[in-house]
């Protein structure tokens, strides 16, 4: 870790610490993981922007069915490419210490595939499809599932979940917080 210590100034580290849910040590650890994705580029320039493909080399993301969405949501340039700051932001949101509301917020954005600020039945279908991977749910099962979800969560009967509804229903989904995290 001594090597990467010099990469950031103390001020930068303090800033990062202030703005994320990490301690300084953890931030350096995050940087190390970032560096592993593309050692050459990052060593040359710590603010290098890594392409989406490189980011997806992160083991947790590699197998994650929502990897494209995650990149999209956290990329500040909105094209899926990430700088270290974006990466840090992502890891911070997924860390254990991030409060639930922050996690919920980002989860909403990740699951909102068409980015219209509503999780519609189309989004839900996409989510379920990604979740089940190779196996596909039969059409009527999918419909039943989506109906059930709306039954539970869609309070205003508009056949889509707004953020408020999503937040509300997540408060009753205890597995969410446990699963929505990436350990450093």
């Amino acid at each position: 870790m001594g090597g990467s210590q010099s990469v950031f100034t103390e001020q930068e580290l303090t800033d990062y610490q202030e703005l994320t849910y990490f301690t300084k040590k953890e931030i350096l650890h995050v940087f190390k993981r970032f560096q592993q994705l593309n050692p050459d580029a990052v060593t040359k320039d710590k603010n290098a922007k890594l392409g989406k493909d490189e980011i997806l080399e992160l083991p947790e993301l590699k197998v994650n069915p929502f990897r494209d969405r995650i990149c999209q949501v956290f990329s500040s340039s909105k094209d899926g490419n990430m700088t270290f700051e974006d990466f840090l932001d992502m890891m911070s949101v997924f860390s254990d210490n991030a409060p639930k509301n922050v996690k919920v917020e980002y989860a909403f954005r990740i699951y909102d595939f068409d980015e219209d600020d509503m999780i519609s039945s189309k989004d839900l279908k996409e989510v379920v499809d990604k979740l089940t991977g190779e196996q596909q749910l039969p059409e009527e099962d999918m419909q039943q599932l989506i109906d059930n979800i709306f039954e539970e969560a869609d309070l205003d009967d508009d056949d889509s979940l707004s953020f408020a509804e999503f937040e509300h229903v997540i408060s009753k989904a205890p597995d969410f917080v446990n699963s929505f995290r990436i350990r450093l």
Partner: peptide, 10 residues
Amino acid sequence: VFGAWDYCIV
């Protein structure tokens, strides 16, 4: 659905 994926899986 929303809590299904374990983001820790590598």
